[in-house]
Design a protein around this nucleic acid. Structure first.
Lengths: 117, 117
DNA sequence: CGAGGTGCATCAGTGCCATAATACAGCCAT
DNA sequence: ATGGCTGTATTATGGCACTGATGCACCTCG
């Protein structure tokens, strides 16, 4: 009873992007480390190499990842914090207001749910 | 620096659906009242009548709205509360966990943001 | 009955997404 | 140098969601 917010039915390249961003922020891909190759990640995720490349694309555009052609892509120094800051800012500006309004309408209080595991 | 969560670039019929749901929950479309006709709402919103119809569709499927063919669509008794309950349940089950994880990752605390206007 | 209002079905067009098959360009260890 | 790994460009294709135009079936009111 609710055809919903694109949570799971989101384009693959965006899901990959989020997943990679999380890995960078959490340090799963440490700064200076090499990211999985497009082919490797594609195989692991059951996706197409080009789709993975598309996911990686934005990170290079944003200068969070450095490409050494013929070698691989590396996480830039300070990428984690820079990425977190950018995502936080975007979240607060674009997502949170709507989420909060929605919760209020549904009779929910963010403070109460904070403790829920 | 962030090709983002579909907040504004969401399909029109979904945006309309949310907007209508909000109106029902808030009582802007009281129970027993007739909803704006697909053509009227389409004109008002600058959308196509079929897009509006698609937005209305789910509400009839869910039995929240009753169709009197040739006459109009009416808000069923108890629709507001039923809708709110369903949306709340869906939100808590499908959306909140991800949102919460995301906030934690970004170093945000829901309790703190509850007070932000 | 007829006019004007409903919702709804059908068909078509458009654009994004994902995949695929190659081919190319660069680097490195052997 | 060569084989094997990197990322990238190109082109084509299928699928699917979204939107749109038209016409029809139904109801109410005068």
């Amino acid at each position: 009873m609710n055809a919903n917010r694109p949570t799971s039915n989101r384009p693959v390249y965006l899901k990959l992007r989020d997943q990679i961003a999380a890995a960078i922020i959490d340090g799963a891909y440490p700064e200076g480390a090499m990211l999985p190759s497009v082919r490797a990640l594609a195989a692991e995720q059951g996706a197409n190499p080009l789709t993975v490349a598309k996911a990686y694309q934005q990170f290079q555009n944003d200068g969070l990842v450095e490409v050494q052609r013929g070698v691989g892509m590396y996480v830039v120094r300070g990428a984690a914090e820079r990425l977190r800051a950018a995502e936080r800012e975007a979240f607060l500006r674009e997502e949170w207001p709507e989420i909060r309004d929605r919760m209020i309408r549904l009779g929910l209080d963010p403070a109460d749910l904070a403790v829920i595991s």
